[in-house]
Design a protein around this nucleic acid. Structure first.
Length: 888
RNA sequence: GGGUUCGUAGCUCAGCUGGGAUGAGCGUUCGCUUGACGUGCGAGAGGUCGUGGGUUCGAGCCCCGCCGGACCCACCA
């Protein structure tokens, strides 16, 4: 046994401990192990950023589960890795190049990718170091990256496979285009932002009908150059005679047809809709139904593409101003109405996206959606908390084909090759020898795949798939996936259908959902608000253990949480408490000598023959045993916050506040047996308490454990198992009675302002011999906990000052002769108050028991419980009334 | 428009399959140099569980309505 520093200072130990764990290889998972497997794939953080509170929470949850399972005897694989984060990284690298005066296009594809890889190396190692600080026990030997060789091979195989099955197709479709990033983005990457703007009402004159015009309203007047029709509802009496005729498109003086289409809502606006198939998803559909021309009027950077006009080359918003001005001058503008509407923006750069028609690659979703439904219906996939399966199904039921091509360089290049002469597409690992047309020259598709295409394969691509590796066999499917609810659509759904499609299985059994970490005011942490809290700063100040505990306490699965300093400070104070309790124990063990200490190695659930336990020893062992049961149950149902609360309150409130105080006298005594039993119990309870705490607070528990036990590490120690042999119910109940009495006396002393220095006699009266015996046995403890000069246990009130203060507990009556301090009127009032409280309890209890329906319908155990309570309260009432009549 | 979720102590939140709100932390009041710890110890005050119904022997928990907040999706020509 070594000594602990006088002061608890996490910064002095955490790095050292982590290095030791790494060196010992405790995080490594052995695919050849015969132990039962437990596996989690870490949601790969982007190589763009740094650890934020969301990561800290996500990884703390995973780490806690993994450490628990390891101690429980599982072979645990926590598979770590990072994500290439296509757009995010590409944008950051471009910006970095810009700041160095370089340009993406000048560098060329190869040169740019070199820069991007260098970026990746730097940021990957940075974020991994940050996870080390948090205590993440992932198997770093198996670190993967979404664009490494194996993952890339998996991506290519899946693409080719889906293409061959007809589940991937290429088509000209309307997609979301980001004019700044110059790439298509999926629906999921689009955010909606409310913006104040206008509704411009414009007249389109009907051709050949002098004086008649259709009035349309638009928020994007510049798109009128792409109009190829005006739609009215076919049921609309106002306009249905015009269907089939044409209107003159102002400014361009072009005739376009009037079509009848359901899309036009008679109730909304004027009931007439301009149709711009190339720049609006709804209009695109209308265009398809009516065979309308699709005229693209925008360049990729959102400047106007209208050669031969004065509008050509203008920025979209410049053009808008000019169009409005020209319409007004031409007498076409009817009115301008202020209007707030939601604008689609790119979630990465917040640029307003433009719907554009582009040739893109899509994944068909119908078959895949079926996989997702099956996963839940079959029970092969479960959500914790369960209600998130509704969110999941809501997504599944509304899913649309997934646009997977991106006009980026940083990513997995699409394995499609176009014949240079006939243009035919060939999908495969490499270009074919020759095309059917005889041509032997091909060009690869320049596009890359959506980041989530590779993330979707993460649970198996990281384990060696498509090879049937030992690792894959041992650890796939994963047991748990831990992630936030905001990512169910992006990631969870795509992993699920990919898992079924490629491996025939759900990629994981349980999805543990957590919420967002918000700031103290409940706001989302964001760069723009500048309200983010840096986990590393918190670790530096309070330690990783405190941060982890703060993230887990008082938080139920799936719920958002507020992060406040209070929580971290409380967690740090707890750590300090445990630290000092350990120092106290060590100090006493040291002085007790080697012959006591050698008894300490016994396993859980056994008491060495030489040890003679006393009541309070059995009480705390019984509580510990219940704790093991509770914590295990809560860990297994993913109630980590509850489990941690249980451990903390046991160690702090029961072990430190009660047990240690109870045995202080025994530790000072010369009786070798009683001292040995107390020390043995202390050590046993602390060591096992630390084990229960370790998954949550790994560093301090390791430091204490190795110093206390001289063993190698708590990480590889075995988890306590609940045992019947430590169910000392009877002793536990007696000590609880004792505690109740102590609290009652302290309460009286405090109420009467009796200073601790004043020692008074305490009489305990009970007619129950067993109760008397237990108080008798504990009289020394009892006296020290209540600052009593003596404790007299007796069966009646003989010799007690009739004016003594009296409190009634559930198994005894306590008398404290304090007559000189007591105002009899006050005392009577206090007793009356107690009488009233008991009356309430009795009424409740009797009411229940006299209710015939309760007696006939409630479970028998519940009835018995209530009867016992009633008996206790009746007895208490009897004593209180006796005292009242004695005083009156 | 579709869906989800919340409303419990001054604040932030727990409350397990319905069985006494002896719930936690912080804050607050009073007291304590108790030799492990003031990052501590002891004792208090503080709640008609948003609201109105219903089901039940019994509702913070289940069902319906309402009020008030949050979020997601779709739409907004």
């Amino acid at each position: 046994m070594k000594e602990l520093d006088k002061k608890y200072d996490p910064s002095l130990m955490e790095d050292r401990i982590y290095e030791k764990w790494m060196k010992m290889g405790y995080f490594h998972a052995d695919e050849k192990s015969l132990k039962k497997a437990f596996s989690i794939s870490m949601p790969p953080p982007n190589v763009t950023g740094q650890l934020h509170m969301g990561h800290a929470l996500d990884n703390t949850l995973q780490d806690t589960l993994c450490r628990y399972k390891r101690m429980k005897g599982y072979e645990v694989l926590w598979q770590p890795g990072t994500d290439h984060a296509a757009i995010a990284t590409e944008v950051k690298v471009i910006n970095k190049l810009k700041s160095e005066g370089k340009d993406k296009n000048e560098l060329g594809r190869e040169g740019f990718l070199k820069e991007a890889w260098a970026w990746k190396e730097e940021y990957e190692s940075r974020i991994i170091n940050q996870m080390h600080k948090l205590g993440v026990s992932a198997d770093w030997d198996r670190l993967r990256f979404t664009m490494d060789e194996g993952c890339s091979a998996a991506v290519e195989k899946v693409f080719i496979d889906l293409y061959n099955k007809g589940l991937i197709y290429k088509g000209n479709r309307i997609i979301n285009w980001c004019p700044v990033c110059k790439t298509s983005i999926s629906d999921a990457e689009v955010e909606h932002e409310d913006q104040a703007s206008f509704f411009w009402h414009i007249k389109y004159p009907v051709a050949g009908e002098e004086g008649r015009a259709l009035e349309v309203a638009t928020t994007r007047p510049e798109t009128m150059f792409g109009d190829t029709a005006v739609a009215v509802n076919p049921e609309d009496d106002r306009y249905k005679d015009l269907i089939g005729k044409t209107v003159i498109l102002p400014l361009l003086n072009k005739e376009i047809p009037i079509v009848g289409d359901e899309h036009a809502d008679m109730e909304f606006g004027t009931g007439c809709v301009k149709i711009t198939p190339a720049h609006d998803p709804n209009d695109f559909e209308v265009g398809k139904r009516h065979g309308l021309e699709e005229i693209c009027i925008l360049h990729d950077d959102a400047t106007i593409d209208l050669p031969g006009t004065k509008y050509d080359g203008l920025d979209r918003y410049e053009c808008r101003k000019l169009v409005v001005k020209d319409l007004e001058e031409g007498g076409y503008l009817v009115k301008t109405v202020p209007h707030t509407h939601s604008v689609d923006t790119h979630d990465r750069c917040h640029t307003t996206v433009e719907p554009m028609i582009k040739p893109q690659w899509f994944v068909k979703m119908d078959v895949h959606a079926e996989h997702c439904r099956h996963a839940l219906a079959s029970g092969e996939l479960k959500f914790v908390p369960e209600n998130y399966s509704k969110t999941y199904m809501n997504w599944v039921d509304n899913i649309k084909d997934w646009c997977i091509s991106r006009q980026l360089w940083w990513g997995h290049r699409i394995p499609a090759w176009y014949c240079d002469s006939c243009g035919k597409v060939h999908v495969g690992h490499a270009a074919p020898e020759s095309c059917e047309c005889g041509c032997t020259s091909f060009t690869q598709d320049p596009d890359t795949l959506d980041t989530w295409f590779s993330s979707a394969l993460w649970p198996f691509s990281t384990l060696g798939w498509p090879e049937e590796t030992e690792t894959l066999k041992k650890f796939y499917p994963n047991d748990v996936l831990v992630t936030g609810y905001d990512i169910i659509f992006f990631w969870v759904i795509r992993m699920v259908f990919s898992g079924y499609e490629q491996t025939g299985k759900s990629p994981f059994d349980t999805v543990l959902i957590h919420g967002l970490v918000r700031d103290a005011l409940g706001r989302k942490m964001s760069k723009s608000l500048g309200n983010g809290i840096d986990p590393l700063a918190v670790i530096e100040q309070y330690g990783a253990d405190a941060l982890r505990a703060a993230l887990l306490t008082g938080n139920a699965p799936g719920n958002d949480m507020r992060f406040t300093d209070d929580k971290v400070i409380n967690a740090r104070n707890f750590a300090n408490k445990i630290w000092n309790a350990t120092r106290f124990i060590m100090m006493n063990v040291e002085s007790a000598g080697e012959d006591v200490r050698k008894l300490f190695s016994s396993g859980y659930g056994k008491v060495p023959e030489e040890i003679r336990l006393e009541k309070e020893d059995r009480w705390i062992l019984c509580l510990l045993n219940d704790l093991v049961d509770n914590v295990t149950r809560n860990m297994d149902t993913f109630e980590l916050g509850v489990a941690l609360d249980n451990v903390m309150s046991f160690l702090w409130n029961e072990l430190c506040d009660w047990y240690i105080e109870m045995i202080k006298a025994r530790l000072k005594s010369d009786d070798r047996d009683t001292k040995a039993a107390a020390l043995w119990t202390l050590n046993t309870v602390l060591v096992n308490g630390l084990k229960l705490l370790h998954p949550f607070m790994p560093f301090i528990t390791e430091e204490i454990y190795v110093n206390l036990t001289d063993e190698e590490s708590i990480m590889i120690s075995s988890y306590p198992e609940y045992t019947e042999s430590w169910n000392f119910r009877d002793d536990a109940a007696q000590v609880e009675g004792l505690k109740e009495a102590v609290r009652a006396i302290r309460s009286i002393r405090s109420e009467k302002n009796v200073p601790p220095s004043k020692k008074v006699s305490v009489y305990v009266v009970s007619t129950d011999e067993k109760v008397r015996n237990s108080f008798e046995a504990a009289s020394a403890v009892f006296a020290s906990l209540t600052q009593a000069s003596e404790v007299l246990v007796q069966q009646d009130k003989t010799g007690i000052d009739p004016n003594a203060v009296n409190v009634v507990t559930s198994n005894a009556a306590i008398y404290i002769p304090l007559s000189e301090l007591v105002d009899m009127g006050e005392e009577l009032a206090r007793l009356k108050k107690e009488e009233k409280r008991l009356e309430g309890e009795l009424a409740r209890s009797r009411g229940m028991l006299s209710n015939e329906k309760f007696i006939s319908k409630a479970p028998a155990a519940k009835i018995e419980e209530e009867k016992a309570k009633l008996a206790t309260y009746e007895e208490m009432m009897r004593k209180v009334r006796e005292q009242i009549s004695a005083l009156s």
